[in-house]
Design a protein around this nucleic acid. Sequence first.
DNA 1: CAAGGGTCCTGAATGC
DNA 2: TGCATTCAGGACCCTT
Length: 277
Amino acid sequence: MPELPEAETIARGLSRHLSGKRIVQVRALRPDIFNLRPRSLKKLLQGRMITDAGRLGKKVLLEVEGGNKLVFSLGMSGQLYLLSVKEVLPTHTHLILGFSGLKQSLIFRDPRRFGRIDLVGRNSVKGAYTALDKLGADALSLSEDEFMAITSARKRQIKPLLLDQTCICGLGNIYADECLFRARIHPLSRADELDRGELRHLYWAMRELLLEAISEGGSSISDYVDASGEMGRFQVRHKVYGREGEPCPVCGERIVKIRVGGRGTHFCPRCQSEAKP
DNA sequence: CAAGGGTCCTGAATGC
DNA sequence: TGCATTCAGGACCCTT
């Protein structure tokens, strides 16, 4: 499931390949995943240039000439990559963007359809909600002090808090488990009961983890590929996620899997034993 | 405010 | 072998 490192990897690829390219073809094949009707979408995109690509939390942003942004929420199986115009269109393709002078089209495909695409910004039509408004601070942009303020004020369990995009955006299930493991914090710990040292540790573990994952091109555990269709390499570095029953790489204890806030949660019961509720 | 459950969706994995 | 069931997840909804 694409999270911050995957969104960052995709955005970098798109920025490199699409900046300055003009959109000449817009095909919205599944209208229900967009905030606008195909007709409006086409009107607002066709003939305009992509000025840059970026990311906020796990969302990938395509900046469109004139001030609008295309916001891609990848859900769990969303893919956004460049495909040669000669290739056969894969199944579950929901959007195709063609560009002037490019032999590749940008396609968005999403078998499970948890993803969506919103065009937001100054020129979007009435009622177009801004998919970005509700997001909290970006996990890689927020300062240590901001992180401390957000976490220490909440009485919630730390793992659901890390996953709450309105508090901090960017972490999904994989990186939440992995950064709690790095920080040796039990996923059920109440955020406000962690001391300053533990929260500090968590903040730096999170940053370090995300930066390492980005440098490895993200994690491919199911469908994720980058803007060029390449898989990530960070999944082999996961210490707890998807490793139920395997020995902890630090202490050798078996990794366990429990449910926290409805999510599968992996951790080492020995390394992450303190502050258990 | 926090927590739990249900909903959407499809492909892979498992069960009988 | 083949069919049915279970599971996975992000974001949203609702109730307690």
